[in-house]
Design a protein around this nucleic acid. Structure first.
Length: 834
RNA sequence: GCCUGGGUGGCGGAAUGGCAGACGCAUCGGACUUAAAAUCCGAUGAGCAAUAGCUCGUGAGGGUUCGACUCCCUCCCCAGGCACCA
């Protein structure tokens, strides 16, 4: 054994060992209760990973190794979210084919993962850009198409000059592109959508099936789906008789409607303009709205504007006629694109009414105790007034009856509205899975027959063109024949969004090389749902919502037994670092110049040290600040452990002796034995319950401190050495998930067989935790006054007596009168005095 | 505005009704060394005190309790999500 800790040597050796023994291969498990599917979000192969990315994979690896030691059959695969824009942009600027650039990046990142000692079943590796994979992405598209869930429509879509079309989820709240930061505009284009809105209710409801997801993520998804309960009420246009339904969450304010507001894109606007009877200014206003970017128009501080149409609508509740306005604050995409305006009780309507001098009619009287602020709409509850038959009733209580009234008279219905919109899945780019559709002049949009999949990306493509999709310019790809009628036809040149490729990869891992189906239902039903999914919070809505949606559709198609793909989710915090430029704390990124390279640290300290510091940095769900000097602590700890094994090498060899029962041990030995089992208890709990790897490691450090202060000169019997040996070897076992290379090496040095995960997990000896004496904390009026050693398990009355007899305590009590004594057995005595 | 987290030493953080600051970083003092690095030993919340010890201290204020970082109420600040969504 080397005196100095030769991390470089041993890390390479054990990485080779794991590879050669297929240590991370998923065995053919048979017991569902002993299987564990541990999934870490697969990366986009950007080229190189920093320590922040590393945190993710290291955490997954800790869990994988721990579960293996606990005897679970573990599936722990890795792959590549390999389609995407950066590779295509590189093709444009550098002339490297996206396939080539992607392959190169994958190779480098795989080397990084291997150098960290992160273990995966590489036999199951997938890359979404491989035809063997995207064939089944296309197959899933066709399944959606067949089930009426994929459709094409010309619609104003989010358009980014660089990234082409974007899903709503990809547009940031400030109206910029999530990926490149450019301003997003609306552009009318023919696009493919998935009907995620049809699944809105189930996606919302089934969040309740996910108690092991962070509440925050469930909340964000619920927010995104945005369910509102209310009523649809059918107004109609007096002048034309056209229906004009509205959605409202406040039917209780129906008697306070003083005008109707519709979106500039509302169909009635077109009808009005076509009729030629529109008042002056209407056409101009509509045109103006159309030219303002969506984000600007829906900004909070955007002034409310509108124009009167000359038409009026009939309020079916009270027969009143109110004017119809076109306004910039009503959105066509939500509800019916028309709003019944109640200025007295809605702030937006109030602001608009004030601007255009429209009447404000109160129908709910503010509470006398919390009166409405002047100059504002009253949105609270109270008795209804000016509301015909409903006068005097509380608005909340009357809600139901109002809807029933509308229902009975057939001018309204209870209704539910969702904020979520259909999912835009097509992109005008080369580097993606082609949408498997053929456009035929006679047959329309015809799905590519299943046996013709995959629709392969052509290799010979010109990336030099400034704009436009290179696929559309590739004649050999575009020109084909219609599978239905055999006439010449054109292929769809849009490709599928990256999100669609990545929302089913966890199914493909189960049968990665299957040729006649994306996966085998029985196999998938065995391994899924994923037992633990680990990834970044940035996917809280996009990836996680899409994946849930796709699995629900597969479930409905009878392909999976489960409704939810991920039973438990863990979202790890980001690693941040102060920027050298401005001293501010930022998420690591090249542009901020605060990236820490794990490769250098592996060279300088070894992978185990990097892993230890990464895990010790703080609670894993929280963001953490990288401290360049902090890694020294982890390095010191591992060096100390190495030196201990080196120095005590002879004693650590198994000589067949075992510890005597705890109560027969000398005090120092017994105390070490107790510390060992406290560590086993706490370390196991920290890993299992909260993923608190930082505290689990702290416990192991404490154990090493205790081992080091164990005096070998004093306790020299073989049975004392057996306790010492047991403490060191158990420590190594507990350290193995965190620092696997050094643990394997030291395990072997202390007589263990190679492959420490096979050796299981240290067993807890409850008897070791018992004590003869305990330290009792003595408080007077809740303040710490003394600590007293007492026999363990003393009845409260005896403990009280012993404490009161204590000299020090008596001194403290002098001149006071005891009112009450509280005894917490084996822990604390609190004396309340006057 | 609504919702969700969070606020503890010089720093990262422990403690979920019972000894606040585990573990680590940094700093200071000491040992070893020709010297440095590495390593080891000790100190390290603030204030008072010669010492024993005392007082204060977990964003602010109040409450519940024998006892509150922890539970309840009000407020302030920070981060994140949603938001002209009717």
């Amino acid at each position: 054994m080397n005196e100095k800790y030769p991390f470089n040597q041993i890390e390479k050796r054990w990485q080779k060992f794991w590879q050669e023994t297929d240590a991370f291969g998923a065995d053919t498990a048979t017991r569902p209760d002993r299987k564990f599917y541990c999934l870490t979000m697969f990366p986009y192969p950007s080229g190189t990973m920093h320590v922040g990315h590393g945190r993710n994979y290291i955490m997954g690896d800790v869990l994988t190794r721990y579960k293996r030691a606990r005897g679970f059959s573990v599936l722990s695969p890795m792959g590549w979210d390999a389609f995407g824009l950066p590779a295509e942009n590189a093709a444009k600027t550098l002339g490297i084919h996206p396939r080539e650039a992607t392959t190169r990046n994958i190779n480098h990142m795989k080397q990084q993962l291997l150098s960290w000692g992160v273990g995966y079943d590489w036999q199951r590796e997938v890359a979404t850009c491989h035809p063997d994979y995207y064939r089944w992405t296309q197959w899933i598209f066709l399944l959606f198409h067949q089930r009426g869930l994929a459709y094409q429509k010309k619609a104003p879509v989010n358009w980014c000059e660089l990234c082409t079309t974007l899903a709503n989820e990809e547009v940031l709240p400030d109206g910029t592109c999530e990926r490149c930061g450019r301003k997003v505009r609306k552009k009318a284009l023919n696009q493919w959508f998935f009907k995620i809105t049809e699944y809105a209710q189930r996606l919302l409801e089934d969040l309740e099936l996910l108690p092991q997801w962070p509440e925050k993520v469930r909340h964000m998804q619920a927010n995104w789906i945005g369910r509102s309960e209310g009523a649809q009420i059918n107004f109609s246009i007096i002048e034309t008789g056209d229906p004009c339904p509205v959605f409202t969450t406040r039917p209780d304010t129906i008697y306070g409607v003083t005008f109707m507001a519709i979106a500039p894109e509302h169909p009635l606007v077109e009808k009005l303009l076509a009729a030629g009877s529109a008042p002056e200014g209407v056409a101009e206003f509509v045109e103006e709205c159309r030219n303002i970017p969506a984000a600007e128009r829906s900004a909070e501080d955007a002034p409310k504007k509108g124009v009167f149409t000359g038409w009026h609508v009939l309020n079916p509740f009270n027969g009143e006629q109110v004017p119809l306005w076109i306004t910039n604050y009503v959105l066509m995409e939500y509800g019916t694109g028309a709003v019944m305006a109640v200025p007295a009780h809605d702030q937006r309507d109030y602001d608009f009414a004030r601007t255009y001098k429209l009447p404000i009619k109160e129908v709910i009287r503010p509470d006398a105790e919390k009166p409405a602020e002047t100059g504002q709409a009253y949105t609270g509850d109270g008795p209804m007034v000016n509301s015909g038959p409903f006068d005097g009733r509380n608005n909340r209580e009357a809600m139901h009856d109002l809807i029933r009234f509308a229902h009975d008279k057939q001018f309204g219905e209870s209704a539910i509205s969702y904020r979520i919109r259909d999912w835009l899945i097509s992109r005008q780019r080369y580097w993606g899975a082609p949408v498997p559709i053929i456009h035929c002049e006679t047959c329309g949009a015809v799905p590519v027959p299943e046996q013709d999949l995959p629709v392969r990306l052509p290799e010979n493509v010109d990336f030099k063109a400034e704009t436009g999709n290179p696929l559309a310019a590739c004649d050999e790809f575009v020109n084909t024949i219609c599978p239905a009628c055999g006439k010449p036809a054109r292929r769809e040149t849009d490709t599928l969004a990256q999100w669609l490729c990545s929302c089913w990869y966890f199914l493909r891992y189960v049968n990665p090389r299957m040729e006649d189906a994306p996966f085998d239902s029985d196999d998938v039903n065995f391994w899924l749902p994923v037992d633990q999914y680990i990834g970044g919070i940035e996917h809280a809505v996009l990836h996680l919502l899409y994946s849930r949606f796709v699995v629900k559709v597969l479930h409905d198609a009878g392909l999976t037994a489960f409704k939810e793909p991920f039973a438990a989710l863990f979202t790890q915090g980001m690693i941040c670092k102060r920027s050298d430029k401005d001293g501010q704390l930022y998420k690591m990124s090249k542009s901020k110049g605060n990236v820490v390279s794990p490769d250098e640290l592996v060279r300088e300290y070894g992978a185990d040290t990097l892993r230890m510091y990464t895990l010790f940095i703080g609670p894993p769900e929280k963001d953490a600040e990288w401290n360049d000097r902090g890694i020294e602590g982890a390095a010191r700890f591992l060096r100390r452990l190495w030196r201990l094994v080196y120095n005590q090498h002879a004693i650590l060899q198994d000589d067949g002796t075992t510890p005597v029962p705890a109560h027969q041990m000398p005090e120092a030995t017994r105390s070490l034995y107790r510390k060992l089992h406290e560590t086993i208890r706490d370390c196991t709990r920290d890993i299992e319950e909260h993923f608190h790897f930082n505290t689990a490691i702290a416990r192991i450090m404490e154990l090493l401190n205790a081992i080091e202060s164990f005096d070998m000169e004093q306790d020299t019997r073989a049975s004392d050495h057996a306790v010492f040996r047991s403490a060191v070897r158990s420590l190594i076992q507990m350290l193995a998930p965190f620092a696997p290379h050094i643990s394997e090496e030291l395990w072997q040095e202390t007589g263990g067989a190679p492959g420490i995960m096979e050796a299981g997990w240290p067993a807890l000896d409850e008897a070791a935790l018992e004590r003869d004496n305990v330290e009792i904390v003595v408080q007077i009026n809740g303040k710490l006054r003394a600590r007293i050693q007492l026999a363990a398990g003393l009845p409260p009355a005896d403990a009280e007596k012993a404490v009161l007899q204590n000299e020090h305590v008596q001194r403290q009590l002098a001149g006071h009168q005891i009112r009450k004594v509280i005894v917490v057995p084996d822990k604390l005595v609190n004396i309340a005095v006057k």
